[in-house]
Amino acid sequence: MAKRDIPEINAGSMADIAFLLLIFFLVTTTMDKDQAYIRNIPKKVEIKTEIIEVEQRNVLAIKANNQNQLMVRGEIIADPDKISEKIIEFYNTNRNVNDLTNDFPTYTHPTKNEIEANLKAAEKELESFEEQDAGDALIDYAYSKIDEWDKMKRSLKLFGGNDFPLINSQANIRIEVQTRTQYSLFAKIQTEIEEAIFELRDTEAKRIFGESYGVIKTRYISDEEPIDKGKLDLLDVLYPARIIEVTPKN
């Protein structure tokens, strides 16, 4: 039997098929990304605990009322862009020298030995909780405390030197809104907080590691290298973002 030539496949309709797929993807997808501020909601606790007094100097209250007027630390502010300056001032005023006469949170300078002592104490606490069978909530709490001190220990090692400046553990940023405050203002407050924290950490990152905070962060997201994790942890310890969102009363 004679060998036959295989006829060529007609590829003329390939373009049509590709166009069809292209148009499908054009219609069902979108270019804009979902961008958001991620926040944690505190866990609900059933046990009534004593209310701990927080010194006024450790609180940075950002209040917004139903008429969308702003107040930061008791001062009425017309321009919301000023909030980030206030936050930077809040963190940096006493960072080098503690001045007890002003109204800003104080700093401690824990040494390696102090941190290790605290870590040991936390471990002991966990042991005693486990012996007493104190319940999951308390044991979780003890674990989180150990994690915290461990993170601090690693951070100090990375920071170098004998001690590092640590803001008062009670220092927090508090967002107090009312029920009719517009979401745009609430989002603006979140933006300002994020900007301030970014700037503080960025300056510190450039000083210690010689690269910007944003670079470290994006690299960690894509590569997840433990070195970058350590760097981010250190920056988090130096400038912790403790944000409290107060539920508005009706």
């Binding site: 979902d34 961008q35 958001a36 501020y37 991620i38 926040r39 944690n40 909601i41 505190p42 866990k43 609900k44 809104v177 009312q178 029920t179 009719r180 405050t181 517009q182 979401y183 203002l185 609430f186 989002a187 979140q190 933006t191 969102e245 539920t247 508005p248 009706n250």
Partner: peptide
């Protein structure tokens, strides 16, 4: 109104959905 957002937040807290993202 942020009041509604805090309503949502409270409901999420009740079911332990403790991570919220505010989209902008």
């Amino acid at each position: 109104p942020t009041g509604l957002i805090f309503d949502i937040r409270k409901e999420l807290q009740n079911v332990d959905g403790l991570t919220i993202a505010y989209a902008v």
